[in-house]
Structure formats: C-alpha cells, structure tokens
Design a protein around this nucleic acid. Structure first.
Length: 444
RNA sequence: GCAGCAGUAGCUCAGUUGGUUAGAGCACUAGUUUGUGGAACUAGGGGUCGGUGGUUCGAAUCCACCCUGCUGUACCA
C-alpha cells in the first residue's frame, strides 16, 4: 500500500478497455487455432492490414467535418486525419482497390485483428476487441455466400459447439428493398430508420418495432425514441410480409439449393434479420448462439449474435472503377470466447509450474540443475522467483495453484534425494533424482 | 447523445432522524516452530466517505453543479 496518493498516475483504464487474463486468452488461442486450420483447408489467404488507416479510406462520411468522431478514434497527423479501424471489411475494400491488378480474382482472404469503436460499451462489448473476418471479393456467385456459412459452422463445431447450440439465420436485403417499393417509400431517411427499427425485433419484439416504425417508442427509463412515421396500413403490410415463413427472393432460393449440395441444414430463414450496416446489398446472415449466457453475477443476459455478414457488392467500387462484388463474414471473437468459457468443456490447462524452493543462495547451482532436468522433461518448473522464508514460498506456490513443491535443502542435497510435496494432498516424500520426473508426472 | 439509478478501504458492503478520532467481512503485511501452503488466532497497514462550492455550531449524511460507473434507449458508417 503506497502512501501519498497525490499526483500519482491513474491506475484506471479508459472506458471500454479491459485487461484480459490468461484463462480467457487460452480459450481465444484455441479458437484461433481452429480458425486457422479451417481457413487453410478452405483455401483462404492470410492477410494483415495496419491498425490505422486514413480516415477517408475507411469511411466516406467524415471529410467535411473538422473533427471526425462518431464512433471512431481519430487524430490529425500533419494535414490528414487518421483513424483506428472499426472493422476489417473497410480496410479489405481499401486493400483490394489498392492492389487490384496484382491479386487473383476472385480474392479470398481471412484476417484476425483488433478493431476499435468509440461507442458505449455493454456487457461483453468493449471498445477494443478482436475480430475474425473471411471474405470473397470479385465474385457474384452465391456459392461464396453459402460457403461462408458452411465454413463458420465448421469452425464453431471444431470449437466444441453442437448443432443444437447455434444457428445461422439468413435473409436478404432484397426482401426489404422490394417491400419498400411495394408500399412506395422513397425517402432514404425513412427507409433507413425503418430498417433500423426492423433490426431490433429480437430485442423489442414486434410490438416495440411497430412503435418505432410508427410514431416512436418510450423505453423503460422513460426516454422517448422518434419513429419512422409510417402509416399504420404500411406497418401492417410490413409485418405480414416479414412474418412469412418462405423466402420469395431468387438469391435466397438459390443459396438454399447450394446448402442442400453441402448437406448443410443448420440454418433458418428469418426475414427479420437486417444487419445494421448500410452497405449490404443481398444475402445477409447472422450467427446466433442458442444456449444461455450469464454475466458475472450469474444472471442470464441477452447475448445476441456473435457475428454475421453478407453480400456487399458496391463497397470496393467506392474507391474507383473496379467492379468487385463481394461477400464476407465477421465474428466477434471475444464475444465467442465469453460464451464458450461458460461451457464446462472449456477448462483449458493454464500454466502451473512446480516450484523449487530456495533455501540458500549457495545452492542455486543445484536448484538450476533440477530445474533444467524437469524443464527438459517437459515439466513446467520454476525456482521460486524471489527471496524469503519457506512459508512465504509455500504460500506463493499455493497461490499460483502449483501442483507440487520441491524441497532441496542442505540435507537433501547431501543425500541426493529431494523432497517432493504434493500440494493438493499434502503428502511429502523423499525421491531419488532419477525418479523425480516420473513421480511429478503422476501428480500433474 | 437522451433517460433512470448509483458512487464510503484493493473487493463486497454497513453507517440509525446531520453529532466526537468513519466501521465490518474478504484480501494484504507481520507474528503464533528461524525447513512447510490451503484452517485458526494475534497484531498491523490502508479511506481528504467521487470532486467542487454552499447550508449549518457541526456534513459520509441536506442543497447545487461537475465527474465517474451501472442499466435502458439511440447511434454503430
């Protein structure tokens, strides 16, 4: 405990940023290794792009503002604004536009990377998080869209999920497009707020959504949200259309046929899937987990999707004249980790070294020889990394969940038989050095 | 951004209608066998009671403003 708190730097983290512990990182590593393995088998190229991009390269909306804010972290460098990327799709579009002549067409790439969003964090949602993206650029074939769904399913199942624990929900922007034509909504703003309203079905239900399509909605705290102001007749038409159980657009009919060829059935047609992003043009999908996810207080929370994607045929085009229709998927890895950690199967071994206690600095050579012997045999081992009484060393070993402690004091060194103490049972035995590895392996 | 609620030790919280040096549990440190952890016991460290200003003889407690957090909602290109 330090005195004199005044003028000390803050030990707090900025809003929405967190330290991540080993337990979580190991699960993440496990997922990543599965992703890489699947991506190689599916023939995707591995790409990395920088964290920063010119603001104008990853968002067409900012140039005339003197301060680009609204969701991204930005700063002005010399004369240009730079931003931390907020997703991996915009940088991909930039990459393809920049390297169009060299890359194979179609171009398949996957990427793992941290993205940043300057938004209000929520449970399991942070301002810095890891995303996984896989995309096909330069093809209109729905084979690509279908393969993304099959591929993500394979990854999830490799990670240990059962078919009953997740589902891919599918729809198409063409459905809402035709719907707007049918009820004759032309105002872009009105279309947009209608889409946003529809996007909230899973959370607010049809009741809430209808309020948002109409005049507006008052939430639990008493705050009022203005709606899209559609007529009640039109709202009714929308509801009826979107409650249909069968797809009526050509792209969906086709992709379902492809799923059949893959013998892939773990999907659901759900016309209420919208996806917030404006750039989608066709098939859209969302990956939803079906088991309960709890917060740290043990309450079941509304977890929503862990990712999704869809077809965006015009994004690359924004950079120039290359016509590069594309489709892709993004997964929020940290959210997936958060959910998977709650499943019992995910007890991944953390590092728990055997601790060699230090009795005397004069015996360091002997400790090091033991340590070397054990480490070379593949046993996680450490010499107590400090000084202090045996009691303190035992407390340390206990704290780090060490399986065993080796006592190698003067007497033991003289007789050549270290004492091995099993920390879970408390048993203590004198062991020949050549038997040490075997004995320890029994304990671990 | 908007709305509601909250802010007392590292953590979880108590603090009675404003009244002396602000408390507990856990955690931490040191002891209770100078070679033995997880239990127990003893002692100890650690708080400008989120901040600033005000009301009052007196404020953790009342008032105003600000900051931060939680929840809902919006935004999420």
């Amino acid at each position: 405990m330090t005195k004199n708190k005044k003028n000390k730097p803050l030990k707090d983290l900025p809003l929405g940023f967190i330290d991540r512990q080993e337990k979580e990182l190991l699960v993440r590593d496990f997922i990543i290794s599965n992703i890489k393995e699947v991506m190689i088998r599916y023939g995707f190229k591995y790409l990395e792009t920088p964290s920063f991009e010119y603001t104008e390269s990853i968002g067409k909306f900012l140039p005339d503002k003197d301060r680009p804010d609204g969701g991204v972290f930005s700063f002005k460098d010399e004369s240009k604004w730079l931003s931390l990327r907020y997703d991996l799709t915009a940088p991909l579009a930039r990459y393809v536009a920049k390297n169009y002549l060299e890359i194979p067409k179609p171009f398949k790439r996957y990427q793992l990377g941290t993205v940043w969003r300057n938004e209000k964090p929520g449970p399991g949602r942070f301002r810095e998080f890891l995303q996984f993206d896989a995309d096909f650029v330069g093809t209109k074939s729905l084979q690509a869209d279908a393969e993304l769904c099959v591929m993500i399913s394979e990854i999830l199942e490799k990670c240990g999920l059962l078919k009953s624990e997740y589902v891919i929900k599918i729809s198409s922007r063409k459905i809402t497009e035709e719907l707007f034509k049918k009820i004759n909504i032309k105002d872009e703003q009105q279309k947009l707020s209608s889409l946003r309203a529809l996007d909230k079905i899973d959370r607010l239900g049809w009741n809430g959504v209808k309020q948002l399509l109409g005049e507006g909605r008052k939430d639990k705290s008493g705050d009022f949200t203005k709606g899209a102001n559609l007529s009640s007749k039109n709202i009714e038409i929308i509801e009826n259309e979107l409650k249909k159980k069968l797809p009526e657009t050509q792209d969906l009919e086709e992709i379902f046929k492809i799923f059949k060829n893959y013998n892939f059935s773990n999907f659901e047609f759900d016309p209420s899937i919208i996806r917030g992003l404006e750039y989608y043009t066709g098939v859209i999908f969302e990956v939803n987990l079906k088991f309960d996810v709890k917060n740290n207080k043990g309450q079941v929370i509304q977890f929503g999707s862990i990712g999704g994607g869809g077809r965006y045929d015009n994004l690359v085009n924004n950079f120039g004249n290359y016509d590069a229709p594309a489709t892709g998927i993004s997964i929020g890895l940290d959210r997936l980790v958060y959910a998977l950690m709650q499943k019992k199967e995910f007890k991944i071994k953390q590092s728990k070294p055997v601790v060699i206690c230090v009795f005397s600095k004069n015996s360091m050579k002997e400790y090091i020889d033991l340590q070397k012997l054990l480490r070379e045999a593949g046993v996680s081992t450490e010499i107590y990394p400090g000084e202090g009484k045996l009691k303190k060393q035992m407390e340390y070993a206990n704290k780090i969940n060490s399986p065993a402690v080796i006592l190698y004091g003067e007497d033991e060194i003289k007789s050549g038989k270290p004492t091995l103490r099993n920390l879970s049972s408390g048993d203590e035995r004198s062991i020949e050095i050549k038997e040490l590895v075997n004995e320890i392996k029994k304990i671990i």
